[in-house]
C-alpha cells in the first residue's frame, strides 16, 4: 500500500468501531505468560523464547489488537489463550475461567480463526460452515439456518457450493471466517483474519464484527501486522515485539508518542540528485528503499526540506513526495520495535 491509501489526519475515528466504556467488565486477563519452543537440530538444542512475560487486560465488548512483525509471538500468544498450547508459566483467565488449568473450556467460551486452516479444505463453503456450527454444539437445523444467515451477511452465497480448496486465497479466508461465526460465542479470536482479502471482503469482515459487538456485546481479539487495519478498527492495541508487549494503548494514544514529528517521503525518477547539497545531507539519514527515501523529522525542518527539493535540479529529478502525520508504524519504530516488519 502506498501512502496515498492512508486516511487523512483527523478522519481516522479513534477506535474505529466505538469502544466500550473504561469500566466494562474484564473479558480476558493474562499474567506473566511465557512460552519457549525447544527444537532439536544437529547443532544441538535451540531455544526460542516466543513469549516472555506477557500481561494483557481485555475488556468485554472491546476490539483488541495484537500488532507486531513476523515472528513476534502473536500466534503463540493466541494459541495459549485458546487452550491449544500450554504455557510454560503464567495465567490466562477468560470470562472468569482458568484456561491454563482447564484448556478444554476455551472451546465453549470463544470461537477461533487460526492463521491457517487445512481441516476444511476439501469441503464446500456451506458444508464447512454447517459442520463447524454443529461441532460447536448447534443442532443440524440451527447450524443450517445460521450458516444461511452468515453466508448472506458476508456475501458468500455465489460461491457457497464450491470446495474451499478451489477458491482464491481471500475467498477461502472469508469462508473460514464464516465458519468461525456459526455458533455464537462471546469472544472471537481471529489470527490475521483479513490476509489476502480485497477491500470489499475486508469491509464485510469488519461490518460483521461490528454488528456482533453492537447487538451482543461480543469481544474481539485480533492479530494483525497491518498498520492501516490497526488504526481504523481497533479500540486498543498491544504492540508485541520479540515475545514482549512493548506498549498497550488506543491507536491515538500510541501515535501521541510520536506527536510533533512528521514523515517526509521522496520518490526520485531515477538517481537521486546528490550534487544538490540539501539532498546530499539528506542521503546520510534517509531510510532508503529503492527510489523511495523516508525521513522522520520536525515540521519546521520538513518545510525547509520540501522547499529545497521542490526547486531547481532536485525538483526535476523528483517523481513524487508526501508529507504525513505520524502513523502507528512510526510509533512502533519509536518504541524500538525491530525495523520494517509491519505492512504499510
Amino acid at each position: 500500500m502506498s501512502d496515498t491509501d492512508r486516511l487523512a489526519p483527523g478522519a481516522t475515528p479513534q477506535g474505529g468501531l466505538g469502544g466500550p466504556g473504561q469500566h466494562a467488565p474484564q473479558c480476558c486477563t493474562v499474567r506473566d505468560l511465557a512460552k519457549t519452543y525447544r527444537t532439536r537440530s544437529r547443532g544441538g538444542a535451540t531455544e526460542i523464547k516466543a513469549n516472555d512475560g506477557i500481561d494483557l487486560d481485555i475488556r468485554c465488548g472491546e476490539v483488541f489488537g495484537l500488532l507486531g512483525p513476523n515472528g513476534a509471538g502473536k500466534s503463540t500468544l493466541v494459541r495459549q489463550l485458546t487452550g491449544l498450547l500450554r504455557p510454560d508459566r503464567g495465567s490466562v483467565q477468560i470470562l472468569g475461567h482458568d484456561i491454563v488449568r482447564r484448556p478444554e473450556l476455551a472451546a465453549r467460551l470463544l470461537a477461533y480463526l487460526g492463521q491457517e486452516s487445512s481441516a476444511l479444505d476439501e469441503l464446500t463453503v456451506v458444508m464447512a460452515a454447517e459442520t463447524t456450527g454443529q461441532l460447536r454444539g448447534l443442532s443440524r437445523a440451527q447450524a443450517r439456518a445460521e450458516t444461511a444467515d452468515v453466508l448472506t451477511e458476508l456475501g458468500l452465497e455465489p460461491i457457497a457450493a464450491r470446495p474451499l480448496a478451489k477458491l482464491s486465497g481471500g475467498q477461502r479466508r472469508l469462508a473460514c471466517f464464516a465458519a468461525t461465526l456459526v455458533g455464537e460465542r462471546p469472544l472471537l479470536v481471529l489470527d490475521e483474519p483479513t490476509t489476502g482479502m480485497d477491500p470489499v471482503a475486508r469491509r464485510a469482515v469488519w461490518a460483521a464484527v461490528d454488528r456482533r459487538r453492537a447487538e451482543r456485546g461480543t469481544t474481539v481479539l485480533l492479530v494483525t501486522h497491518n498498520v492501516i487495519e490497526a488504526e481504523t478498527v481497533l479500540d486498543r492495541v498491544a504492540v508485541v515485539d520479540d515475545g514482549r508487549v512493548i506498549a498497550c494503548d488506543t491507536p491515538g494514544g500510541l501515535k501521541a508518542l510520536v506527536d510533533g514529528d512528521v514523515r517526509l517521503d521522496l520518490v526520485w525518477r531515477t538517481e537521486a540528485p546528490v550534487e544538490v547539497p540539501a539532498v546530499a545531507r539528506l542521503a546520510e539519514r534517509a531510510e532508503r528503499t529503492g527510489r523511495r527515501w523516508t525521513v522522520r523529522t520536525t515540521p519546521e525542518e520538513a518545510r525547509e526540506l520540501v522547499a529545497a527539493v521542490t526547486t531547481g535540479p532536485a525538483f526535476a529529478a523528483l517523481d513524487d513526495f508526501t508529507l504525513a502525520t505520524p502513523s502507528l508504524e512510526d510509533a512502533y519504530l519509536k518504541l524500538g520495535g525491530r525495523h520494517g516488519g509491519l505492512a504499510k
Binding site: Q22, H23, A24, P25, Q26, C27, T29, D57, R59, Q93, L95, G96, H97, L105, A107, R108, L109, E130, T131, Q134, L135, R136, G137, S139, R140, A143, G183, E184, R185, P186
Partner: peptide
C-alpha cells in the same frame, strides 16, 4: 484504570454431544 474483574464466571456454551457430532 483498573477494570472491575468478572466476579462470577460466565456461563459456558453447551458442548456438542457425541452422536450428533459424530454424524456431522
Amino acid at each position: 484504570e483498573e477494570a472491575p474483574p468478572v466476579t462470577t464466571a460466565a456461563p459456558l456454551a453447551p458442548a456438542a454431544r457425541l452422536l450428533p457430532a459424530l454424524g456431522a
